[in-house]
């Protein structure tokens, strides 16, 4: 599978994260999204007329929507990430994938405005993002009341991976996450998943790593 990728794109990170969690290796092809606007150049427009990234190719298959790519990676390599087959769960996963697009269009657009000077009504974008984050906070608090932490069912699914990047990077768009305790704990659970990978601005849980460097008791022993 080849991913046309941009390191700072949360949508591309969705795919990299899902692949890492599913334990598969992607053939990464870096795209000069900014400032080169390579995604609007002839080679990539031939692949994806919409002029967006990520693009995933696998043989003849070309996928250009990150949430569809998540579905493809999970279905082909890690079906447990799709949730179970029950009608309710299938629909819930689909609903969260659509919700993830609302995050992209609000918090993601606010971030592009602030970081890459993309045009947009920043006040309206932040207002819309706040509404979306509040919905997510309420939903996760309801899940926590039932003893869970992930959006659908009792394990992480592509629903979580679709929503996670734009939420975690919302502060880049002037949207602090201080006011969302359940979102914070949900992000903690995702950041602690085995196989989790980082992107600039999103780090893993440091406390899960061994402490680096010599410890004071070791130094004392060496000196003795």
């Amino acid at each position: 599978m080849r991913l046309y990728d941009y390191i700072l794109s949360p949508s591309c990170y969705r795919v990299r994260l899902m692949a890492a969690l599913a334990g598969i290796k992607l053939d990464l092809r870096a795209v000069d999204f900014h400032p080169g606007a390579e995604h609007r150049g002839p080679e990539l427009l031939a692949l994806n007329p919409a002029g967006t990234i990520p693009i995933l190719t696998d043989g003849d298959l070309v996928l250009t929507q990150s949430t569809a790519i998540l579905t493809y990676i999970a279905a082909s390599h890690a079906p447990e990430w799709l949730g179970d087959d029950s009608p309710a769960m299938r629909a819930q996963v689909g609903q969260w994938l659509a919700f993830a697009q609302r995050l992209t269009d609000s918090a993601g657009a606010a971030r592009l405005h602030d970081m890459l000077q993309m045009p947009g009504d920043i006040v309206a974008l932040r207002r819309s993002a706040t509404r979306t984050l509040r919905e997510l906070e309420a939903a996760i608090s309801a899940v926590r009341r039932r003893g869970g932490i992930f959006l659908v069912g009792d394990r992480p699914t592509i629903a979580d991976i679709a929503c996670f990047p734009y939420v975690a990077l919302a502060p880049d768009g002037g949207l602090p996450l201080d006011a969302y305790p359940s979102i914070r704990l949900w992000m903690r659970a995702i950041r602690g998943l085995p196989g989790f990978v980082e992107m600039p601005g999103i780090h893993r849980l440091h406390e899960l790593l061994p402490e680096p460097g010599p410890q004071p008791d070791v130094i004392r022993k060496e000196r003795a």
Binding site: D178, P181, R184, E207
Partner: peptide
């Protein structure tokens, strides 16, 4: 400043 359930052991949270 916070609810205890939102700050589990081994974690830190912003407050005011």
């Amino acid at each position: 400043a916070a609810l205890s359930q939102d700050i589990p052991s081994g974690s830190a949270a912003p407050g005011q």
